[in-house]
Design a protein around this nucleic acid. Sequence first.
DNA 1: GATTAATGTAGAACAGTGTACGGAGTTTTG
DNA 2: CAAAACTCCGTACACTGTTCTACATTAATC
Lengths: 245, 245
Amino acid sequence: MGATRKSIETTLDLLWTGLGRPKRGPRHQLTVRRVVEAAMAVAEAEGVEALSMRKVAAHLGVGAATLYTYVPDKAALLALMVDDMIGRAPLPHTRPGTWREKVEAWAREDLASFRAHPWLIEVTSGPFVGPHAFAWTDSALRVFDDTGLSAEEAVAVVESVDALVRGHVARVVVADRAESLTDPQGRSFASIQEGYLSTRRIEAGRFPSIERIEAPLDAVAVFERSLVWLLDGVERDIAERGARG
Amino acid sequence: MGATRKSIETTLDLLWTGLGRPKRGPRHQLTVRRVVEAAMAVAEAEGVEALSMRKVAAHLGVGAATLYTYVPDKAALLALMVDDMIGRAPLPHTRPGTWREKVEAWAREDLASFRAHPWLIEVTSGPFVGPHAFAWTDSALRVFDDTGLSAEEAVAVVESVDALVRGHVARVVVADRAESLTDPQGRSFASIQEGYLSTRRIEAGRFPSIERIEAPLDAVAVFERSLVWLLDGVERDIAERGARG
DNA sequence: GATTAATGTAGAACAGTGTACGGAGTTTTG
DNA sequence: CAAAACTCCGTACACTGTTCTACATTAATC
């Protein structure tokens, strides 16, 4: 993966300003935005692992090599997709209620959004930070303006909530896929594995604590509880800080 | 990716029991374990994204097609790698101290381990659950045996801590890579992006809350604080439960 | 001991992938 | 009108996971 200085800076330019149109040469028959939209459509329909440059190009009715006129890399395309998606989320500080209500609302919606667009979580690993990501973070920090937390502490809270959401999302997305992936006979991966584990190989008493689970909470319920725990901790921290100062 | 019922069950057999040796035919010159070890060596040295069947085969001095005698899939190979790695982690309930000390110890070590072996986090997305994963979870649940939490609630705590760790790990691993990825001239991705953002395009006042950050906490410090918050919340929950019942 | 069935090995091939290259056609500049 | 700058894209290269097929090897059977 040749990540040259030039391709990195071109990607950053695309994220932050867009590229100035050249003066000479034939007119563009596409725009960066249309390329990004097509890529998102493919990712939405078939998942990121099926997202290829050729498929995006075919969607747009152009040759595969043409995409490289608009975008230096597949990595750049993915970064643009992600930042675009972040830009669609409501800004946290504009939500109603106390800081805690704002955090809960954004966390819940983030979880739902990741779940609805699983390609987001599998791609965000890219190290690019775009303007929408900046704006979102800035807005999230503003949520804590009246809490007495320092800027650094507010960052810690924001990143912690984000980490919690992403961690749960990873689990939920895997579970969702295990349910929807089916073999040629129509059995889901989840049911095959469950069948295997329940009928074979796990003798009673080998995992006693797991056996004690009777009615497992669903993933979203677990997420909600963890959010309460985390924010209880933050709230206590804020209250103590207020009592001292 | 053709995940047939047969390949899924073969993978589960490999995870849980190993495969019985056939009666006829030439002797094996390899074992599943050696294949898995070679794959882990490659992942360790070059990262998962560089892990290919041909590279593993070359490492073992055999043809690429030979690997398919031992393993049905690349997915199976990855599942075996992950479960093997999980098996190396100390069992939570054997750690010293209170439930909280045990949780903190395992969370801290998990973070460090993911960071040292980043391929783990990029692969664990696989839906297979192996015996080491079961054993680890069972052990983690035992940590809460004396807290008064129900089995279901203990699961919620374990999954929440795990989610928090994984979420932070994602961030840390991306940051680590942005630091270590260098272009041909030796500049790191992180420094290129930072240079770009600080000298261009972000006019003062556009992101006021971000500007207010002076000495950002490092990622591990943020993780430690979030762990305190989460466990403070859990502890309060446990205490209230104890007071009621 | 010879035959047959079952199995491990691996080269070649298939359908993909991201992307570099070079040529053809198009538009603007001088 | 020529030259420069540019878009478009067929082709090609080095990869990928996986299957197929031919062959060698072993064990069981007659």
